Simulated assay, not measured.
Amino acid sequence: MADADDNTTVTVSRRSFLGAATAAPVAAVGEGLSPDAALRRAWTQAAYDAAALRRDANRLRTALTRRIGPAP
């Protein structure tokens, strides 16, 4: 069961990701960043957010498994 905790998939639609990624460069260009640098910053932040969501999902799955037992 411990191996199954590492296989969490977070689904993000292309539309929601591109919406967030394209909104960031517009705000960041005013801060002196190039559009490429701003897009990279948004991409990196999205990767960090996805990793945090995976950690939360794994933590919640582990807690639920401890409470009710493993799936049949």
Rank of each mutant, 00 (worst) to 15 (best):
A71E: 03
A50R: 11
E31W: 09
T9Y: 04
D3E: 15
A57C: 02
S34T: 15
R41E: 13
V26M: 06
L53K: 05
A50I: 12
A50L: 11
M1K: 13
Y48H: 06
P72V: 00
L60F: 13
D36G: 10
V12I: 09
D56G: 03
A24K: 10
P35Q: 10
D36K: 11
V29I: 12
W43H: 02
T9P: 00
R14Q: 15
N7H: 09
S16D: 15
G32Y: 07
W43S: 08
D36W: 03
T8Q: 09
P72E: 04
R14K: 14
L64K: 09
A4D: 12
A50H: 04
R66Y: 09
D49I: 06
R54N: 03
F17A: 10
A47H: 03
A50T: 13
S34I: 00
G30A: 12
T8A: 13
T44H: 00
A71W: 00
G32M: 06
G32I: 01
V10C: 07
T9D: 08
T11W: 07
T22H: 04
N58Q: 12
R61M: 01
F17E: 08
Y48K: 05
A42S: 08
L53D: 12
G19V: 04
N7R: 07
R67Q: 13
R14I: 12
A63S: 15
A51I: 01
T9I: 13
A20D: 12
T8K: 04
A63F: 06
G30H: 10
D36L: 13
A20F: 13
G30F: 10
A50E: 11
A71M: 04
P35H: 04
L39S: 06
A28G: 13
S16M: 13
E31S: 13
Y48F: 04
R15L: 13
I68Y: 15
R41M: 14
A23H: 15
Q45V: 07
N58A: 10
R55M: 03
G30T: 14
V29A: 12
R67A: 15
Y48V: 11
G30K: 04
V12H: 02
